[in-house]
Design a protein around this nucleic acid. Sequence first.
DNA 1: TTACAAACCAAGCGCTTGCTTGGTATTGTC
DNA 2: GACAATACCAAGCAAGCGCTTGGTTTGTAA
Lengths: 209, 209
Amino acid sequence: MAFVNQNPILQSLIAEQLVSDPASARGRLLNEAARLFRDKGYERTTVRDLAAAVGIQSGSLFHHFRTKEEILKAVMVETIRLNTALMQAAADKAESAREKLRALVRTELESINGQTGEAMAVLVYEWRSLSESSQAEVLELRDIYEDLWLSVLHQLAEAKQLGADPFITRRMLTGALSWTVTWYRPERGGLTLDGLTDQVMAMLGLDQC
Amino acid sequence: MAFVNQNPILQSLIAEQLVSDPASARGRLLNEAARLFRDKGYERTTVRDLAAAVGIQSGSLFHHFRTKEEILKAVMVETIRLNTALMQAAADKAESAREKLRALVRTELESINGQTGEAMAVLVYEWRSLSESSQAEVLELRDIYEDLWLSVLHQLAEAKQLGADPFITRRMLTGALSWTVTWYRPERGGLTLDGLTDQVMAMLGLDQC
DNA sequence: TTACAAACCAAGCGCTTGCTTGGTATTGTC
DNA sequence: GACAATACCAAGCAAGCGCTTGGTTTGTAA
């Protein structure tokens, strides 16, 4: 009980049963699964690993999920749901388009490098391990998430504040931001998340104005 | 025999035995392995898949490579060797630092989305599947490759042409450029590799001078 | 033609995998 | 305090995995 989550956005999603409570059996399993999938990859992680991580027998997993792949899908779906809500809230708070973009960058960096980092990495790098039908389901959710970005980037493009095409800029940002998970270590080293956000905005030429 | 390779850089690397001839048995296997590893992932690709792709029995693979992992390592090592040489040559041809950066971006995009694209994707996304000792070996080669980028980016930073820190800019570019492999399709759609390079330079505010 | 190594095949071993099965605690409800 | 429903265990099955083995074919050079 070292950590009690107080995020109101997470709380309301749990209430709506759109994401699992991290304190529940299912939630704990999904958290451990995200960590294992990120550290070892989906294929290298066995159902025995997953079961051991939450202290049950491997066969007991299949009382909660029908297949191993269903666990991967649940990790991805719940992660997108949570992060879409977080991004929406962050963008709504900001005033200008530039501030909205900054909020999106900052929030996505936090998702990738913070508490939901394991799950975000899984979402990006374990995509191929999903069956095609599951991919289609997850893709629908991701479209909502991406529309958030594109509307802000379009605003900036119309105001001539963006060097490149909005679609391409978003794709470049997707790669650049998700890649931070491989190198950004906030604990050792002076660069904070805000500092990193500044660097991203500076790279885009959006630091002044 | 539809395709005869004429690239002089590749030819000299083959002569020095640093890279396998794509026409040789070993070279063909490595090409097929790169394709399979990229399409299905290293773990999902079986030695039987690899053998079938070049028309031999699975056991016969182990006449050429001692383990399956050795195949993955060979794909990565040879890819880095080839691309370091290609990048070096491209940068040497350019005059200004800005033109050198453009050449590096253009060449890396070509590596990622062209003929060596499968192998480049493997290099980026199958890193975890390498044993630690192999990772260390490959890392040494990658440092040489990265120094190419950093020297050019430092030049630009000193000339105040770069919005953000050189190290961070390179890391952002690594993510952004490698991510293109997931969405950039030159065949269907108007965007050429040169056009994509323009967009990257524009995003960095380096399209004019 | 002979000699020999490199390249390959056919068969399968030992192990791990995802998942199933039949049964036993544990929990919540009236 | 009876009774489901839920959560879990112990055991193991069938299939697939990387890799080994013993023997055969192919290429090359004297």
